[in-house]
Design a protein around this nucleic acid. Structure first.
Lengths: 223, 223
DNA sequence: AAAAGTTTCAAACGATTGTTTAAATCATGA
DNA sequence: TCATGATTTAAACAATCGTTTGAAACTTTT
């Protein structure tokens, strides 16, 4: 046993949360899987809620830093010019997909994260909102600059839809087996698949009922 | 009190499930909201699991019947010819969006359904797989007929992504408030928005790494 | 109006939850 | 080596969970 108790608990909790959900995972299950004493969670983290936060923070902070770094790199390369939508999508969703492909813990975590966006629990919502605040602001700005003609509200909805597609993409074949036998073993393929789907959705023509009366009604492509 | 206890419990459970999740909603919360006795759930349904199933079955069966009816109508109209992808998407997702717009219970339920697809609980998974079996089979067949050139696996993934976008669309502005202030009061607008996003994603070019070596590499549109 | 069947009710059940306690064990530096 | 602090341990805590019970109240049938 070379890994310290705190880390073993985080790893075990991550695995069990994705398998059984946050509520249904008990401290006794976690400490048993981590080969630690029941009281260890409250000793090292203070409470179950604090443990949940720690599980998310450990990887989510890093993930969003990566996203911002990727965006910053693209922006430096562009020297002030607006980025291509594809680059922004790549910076936000590509980083996530790539983390989801990392067998070394990232995969488990991203599945957990995917099914937590819709989690109704209050403290999880406020926690996520906090963790995402900066990265959301950066990407919103980048998108608005790249697509000045797209109404902001319209774009926010599309971003929301894209988050949904990402969530299902990384929550993996679990829900997908509902559709039939599927091979999700190739992360590169998943990356390529999701990417072209997202770009296709993002660049779809704006819905006609919403499109502002334009002088060239045919030329209402989003991007 | 004109509505019978059984229905009051179903309504209350639906509301509370979407607000607190399945696990975190207790029978005492439900019976209190329904103004019924605690024992009423076990009397009318047998157990909490059976109640959950009843909550879903009540509306999900009807929803999938509507989907099949819409598809059947399109097929009759087409007289044996393949449907347009847009029609198939309309039959599956349009019906769902329209139900999600129905204030009379449908809205609450669709939000619940959206966040249940990724629910890890075993009995929920098998139950959903059961309820969806027929409708999935019908729509898979229709899509394969409409898009014979798209590899089946590729389409299944896109369908999966589309389910994710739908899920987020109807789980509503809850998660979306993470992005900023948003107006989700207009169901017609939501319908139009999601529809053009889905069609855009579905018809996006196939990812190049996956596209089979073709004689006309430029003409690799999915639909 | 009596009987039979259905629904409601308050109370309690055992099981399990997250958390706390105080003693035991381990590790570290003087 | 001893003392100090950090960690682990077994046991118990109160609270809450889903479920069961048996009698009361209400409906329907005869």
């Amino acid at each position: 046993m070379e890994i310290d108790t705190r880390t073993r608990i985080l790893d075990a909790a991550e695995r069990l949360f994705v398998r059984h959900g946050l509520d249904a995972t008990t401290l006794r299950m976690i400490t048993a899987e981590a080969q630690a004493n029941l009281a260890a969670v409250n000793y090292h983290f203070g409470s179950k809620e604090a443990l949940i936060e720690a599980v998310f923070r450990r990887r989510l902070t890093w993930l969003n830093e990566q996203r911002i770094a990727a965006l910053t790199a693209f922006e430096a390369e562009a020297k002030g010019a607006p980025l291509k939508p594809r680059q922004i999508v790549e910076a936000f969703f590509g980083v996530a997909i790539r983390m989801a492909a990392d067998k070394n813990g990232g995969q488990t975590f991203m599945r957990l994260l995917g099914r937590t966006y819709t989690e109704p629990t209050d403290f999880i919502r406020t926690f996520l909102a906090d963790e995402y605040a900066e990265v959301i602001a950066r990407f919103k700005a980048a998108f608005f600059k790249a697509l000045p003609d797209v109404p902001q509200e319209e774009f926010l909805w599309r971003f929301h839809f894209m988050m949904g597609a990402l969530s299902y993409a990384i929550s993996g074949a679990d829900a997908l087996r509902l559709l039939g036998p599927i091979d999700d073993s190739d992360p590169e393929a998943l990356y390529a698949r999701l990417m072209s789907f997202l770009i296709g959705g993002l660049r779809a023509p704006l819905p006609e009922v919403l499109a502002k009366p334009a002088r060239k009604p045919r030329a209402n492509r989003a991007a």
